[in-house]
Simulated scan of single mutants.
Amino acid sequence: MLRIGSVVLGVSDVPRAAAFWMEALGYVPRDDAEDDWVVLVPAEGSGPQLSLGLSETPVQERPRVHLNLYAGDAADQAAEVERLVSLGAGRVDWDHCPDDADFIVLADPDGNRFCVIDTGRG
């Protein structure tokens, strides 16, 4: 049986991206980080790995794959969005977002888009 071992993001600055995602998720490097590659793992417990690899390809405005980060409810979502923005994430004004969306679209410092989901809506 296969399982997902790692989600990989292409980034233009691996150390900067690693610093952002470690603070955002509470992750640590699995091994010694390199200038062009690092695998991040949960500091406590198990969970999906996040691998960051040096990439020269441009960021996609509407990526086919992205991360969804789950928040407990609307208040948690708002607090997490503000925390992530303070770490260097940017808000994305996405015109495809429905009026009643349970998600907020952000971009990491490299421009990779991700969503923060309010899971309290049921």
Rank of each mutant, 00 (worst) to 15 (best):
L2G: 14
R3S: 14
R3E: 14
G5C: 12
G10Q: 04
S12D: 13
V14H: 09
V14N: 08
P15S: 09
R16Y: 05
A17F: 08
A17I: 05
A17V: 08
A18L: 06
A18T: 05
F20N: 07
W21A: 06
M22N: 08
M22G: 11
M22E: 14
A24E: 09
G26K: 00
G26A: 04
Y27C: 06
V28W: 06
V28G: 04
V28T: 11
V28H: 06
V28D: 08
R30Q: 15
D31P: 12
D32R: 14
A33K: 11
A33I: 08
E34F: 13
D35N: 14
W37T: 14
V38K: 06
V39D: 15
V39Q: 12
L40H: 01
L40C: 00
L40M: 03
V41H: 03
P42F: 07
P42Y: 03
P42E: 05
E44R: 12
G45Y: 04
G45N: 04
S46P: 08
S46W: 10
S46V: 13
G47R: 02
P48V: 09
Q49P: 03
Q49G: 09
L50P: 01
S51V: 06
L52I: 02
L54N: 11
S55A: 02
E56I: 12
E56Y: 10
E56D: 15
T57M: 09
T57V: 09
T57F: 09
P58H: 01
P58C: 02
P58G: 00
Q60G: 02
Q60T: 00
R62D: 05
P63W: 01
P63T: 02
N68W: 07
N68P: 12
L69T: 08
L69Q: 07
A71I: 01
G72F: 06
D73F: 00
A74H: 03
A75V: 06
D76A: 03
D76G: 05
Q77W: 01
Q77P: 02
E80V: 14
E82C: 00
R83Y: 13
L84Y: 00
V85Y: 01
S86T: 06
S86Q: 03
L87Y: 06
G88K: 04
A89F: 05
D93S: 14
D93H: 13
W94F: 13
D95Q: 14
D95H: 14
H96P: 13
P98N: 01
D99Y: 09
D100G: 08
D100C: 04
A101T: 15
D102P: 15
I104C: 05
L106Y: 08
L106Q: 06
P109T: 07
D110F: 10
D110H: 12
G111L: 12
G111E: 10
G111P: 13
N112R: 10
R113H: 14
F114N: 09
C115I: 00
C115G: 04
V116I: 11
I117H: 12
I117C: 12
T119C: 10
T119H: 09
T119W: 07
G120V: 02
R121T: 11
G122H: 00
G122A: 06
